[in-house]
Design a protein around this nucleic acid. Structure first.
Ligand code: SF4
Ligand code: SF4
Lengths: 144, 144
DNA sequence: GATAAATAAGATGCTTTTTGTCTTATATCC
DNA sequence: GGATATAAGACAAAAAGCATCTTATTTATC
């Protein structure tokens, strides 16, 4: 019942990108260093974020990462689910056939509700808002 | 970000007990059979529930399980956390030292809020209410 | 007290997920 | 072509999840 490291790293990555000048290409290494993400691990994560249409990856020298959409159109939910898959909380919520009691189960309904609430809360938190609210990003280094 | 099988089994166990006549001692095997829980696995789970003060385990012949408190005083949250530990959603919510950004991090605040909401929703669902609401418990067998 | 019917407790094992790293290849700028 | 990036796939250690096996203990009843 907790976010994986990969999920957290994805969030940190987008948080960093969203705090950079809009449209700027940022080196993967810079993100990794500043946000304390294992360098190569970030590659895998960035690729998932790219598949989800959240970031754009530019190859070659002068390459790096860039937000694919405006930060106000990327939510915490988008990023987390891009990495860890859709949030369901309980198996029977994703697969009706996983439990024969599902149709009449009162517990099932609680999980469904909890899921909706959680996804709504995460969905309302956009990275534009998160960056504005948090004034904590001191860079360590590395930038020209 | 999903409930473990053990957690789900714990919930099923209490659901079954709460649906039985109040104060009745129910054999572990009966619970396992009716709620499709691996028999021996239920032993481990029941022991955790006993430590948490949710069920009472009676040994010996004529032994079995019994709710330690009234079903209206046991919530879904109680049972889930008894089995899987306290819900935090993200590491930095349980351990302030796990991330140096924590004090000023806006993402952290979202996770804290989401956690409170989730725990509240699960906490409001009592097994008395769940049993009343769900009329799905057909027993398969085994009872005299 | 012996027997039968239950649970307790610890060790063990298999599988899946998580969290990475290593290596080789490819793209782009100059 | 060389320097500087990322891509992509294989690999692997560690942790978590999901049980099961075995042996011991407790209790009711005869
Ligand atoms: S018993 Fe209810 S909550 Fe549990 S898996 Fe089945 S439908 Fe879902
Ligand atoms: S960056 Fe924010 S949300 Fe992520 S671990 Fe640190 S404090 Fe928590």
């Amino acid at each position: 019942m907790r976010l994986t490291r990969a999920g957290e790293y994805g969030v940190r990555c987008i948080l960093y990108l969203a705090a950079c000048p809009r449209g700027a290409v940022v080196k993967k290494k810079e993100v990794a260093l500043n946000m304390e993400i294992p360098d190569q691990f970030l590659s895998k994560i960035a690729q998932q974020l790219a598949v989800a249409g959240i970031v754009e990856i530019i190859q070659g020298s002068k390459g790096g990462l860039r937000l694919a959409r405006d930060a106000k159109d990327v939510s915490l939910l988008d990023v987390v689910e891009a990495i860890t898959g859709e949030i369901f909380l309980n198996d029977c919520v994703s697969d009706p056939n996983s439990c024969r009691n599902q149709p009449t189960c009162s517990v099932h309904r609680v999980w469904s509700k909890a899921r909706m609430q959680l996804r709504e809360t995460l969905g309302l938190a956009t990275f534009a808002g998160l960056v504005e609210e948090g004034h904590c990003l001191q860079k360590k280094d590395d930038r020209a």
